[in-house]
């Protein structure tokens, strides 16, 4: 039985002189929420467009839901989602938008119940008969998700689905996506918010300048971050700083470095995890309470920055892929 919803090998896509995707390999199994991240212009939208059948690759092979994507537009049934915003019609109500989509997909008598179901899933039943022009960005995002859910997809492709959502709305959308993945749907989500991806995705793929610079489990990505800056808040900042200064393999980040140092009695250190453990042990041993200890920049974000830093892209073969 086919277990991979998306299988891409050597995908290349160019627009004139611009290489949007350059030999991209990607595997996304059924039942997984897969994150797609990258700086602006990295090729995320192009890749999502390929997955949604909006264009075909110039080179390479792409297999979606077990069906090879040919030289003509179009992907198999079972693919849904949106790229660059949900793209619904402001002159129509939420229900009319979904009913129109149901009509296009030929759901016939089941259309009405599917529309109600999709609206309920994203929590928009109360405003189903309001025109979209009065909707907030977050409500439009949720309706875009409802439009995708309406088709009961096996591959769901979403571009920044949490954009404009309040925390409660974001949690709700995440829950819907996890449920879908739990039922076997492959979900591809692009986002700039690494914390969102960490909370939602089992695996992530990082694109930079059209190339895959990382693909694998989120935990593996965090490990790619290497040494981080940590902010330390203690009951005795002067003594704490002195103990930190005595530890080898650990540096105190000067305040002017702009690495998150604050003037509230805390200090910032740059250290690998073992040295950080030693620092905590020594502080506690000296009777100094450790009130707060955490990375200045979250590990995933730090890894992302490290992997996509244009100054670090001299070696084109330096893509790091988790071996499966």
């Amino acid at each position: 039985m086919e277990t991979t919803a998306v299988r891409a090998r050597g995908i290349t896509q160019t627009f004139g002189d611009v290489v949007a995707l350059d030999g991209v390999d990607l595997d996304i199994p059924y039942g997984q929420v897969h994150g797609l991240v990258g700086p602006n212009g990295a090729g995320k939208t192009t890749l999502l467009g390929l997955l949604l059948g909006l264009s075909v690759p110039d080179a390479g092979s792409l297999q979606i839901l077990g069906t090879p994507v040919g030289r003509v537009l179009g992907v198999p049934d079972g693919v849904a989602g949106f790229v660059d915003g949900p793209g619904l019609y402001p002159a129509l109500t939420a229900r009319q938008n979904l009913a129109a989509l149901a009509g296009l997909r030929g759901y016939g008598a089941a259309a009405a119940s599917r529309v109600e179901d999709a609206l309920e899933q994203v929590g928009l039943l109360d405003v189903a008969d309001d025109r979209l022009r009065g909707f907030s960005l977050g409500m439009r995002q949720r309706l875009g998700l409802a439009a995708a859910l309406l088709t009961q997809p096996r591959l769901l492709v979403l571009d920044e689905p949490a954009n404009g959502l309040d925390p409660a709305g974001k949690r709700h959308v995440h829950r819907v996506l996890r449920n879908l993945a739990g039922q076997g749907t492959a979900v591809v989500v692009s986002s700039h918010r690494m914390d969102d991806l960490a909370a939602l995705c089992a695996e992530v793929t990082i694109l930079s300048a059209g190339r895959v610079v990382f693909t694998g489990p989120v935990g593996k990505l965090a490990a790619e971050s290497g040494e981080l800056d940590y902010r330390v808040v203690t009951s005795d900042p002067v003594a704490g700083r002195r103990i930190a200064a005595q530890l080898s393999g650990l540096q105190i980040v000067p305040p002017e470095s702009g690495s998150g140092h604050v003037e509230d009695g805390s200090f910032v250190v740059h250290a690998p995890v073992p040295q950080l453990d030693e620092l905590v042990a020594r502080l506690v041993g000296a009777g100094i309470a450790v009130r707060e200890l955490g990375p200045v920049v979250p590990p995933l974000e730090a890894a992302f920055l490290a992997l996509t830093d244009p100054n670090d892209m001299d070696d084109p073969t330096a893509s790091r892929t988790d071996a499966r």
């Binding site: 039985m1 086919e2 277990t3 919803a5 059924y30 039942g31 059948g53 979606i64 839901l65 077990g66 069906t67 179009g74 992907v75 198999p76 049934d77 079972g78 693919v79 296009l104 997909r105 030929g106 179901d117 309920e120 899933q121 929590g123 859910l149 009961q152 096996r154 709700h172 829950r175 819907v176 449920n179 879908l180 039922q183 076997g184 749907t185």
Partner: peptide
């Protein structure tokens, strides 16, 4: 807000996409 149940997705070879009826 409730989450409606949907049928379990069964992986397998997909049908070639059908355009919407004209």
């Amino acid at each position: 807000m409730t989450t409606a149940t949907t049928s379990q997705v069964r992986p397998g070879a997909a049908q070639r996409s059908r355009p919407a009826r004209f």
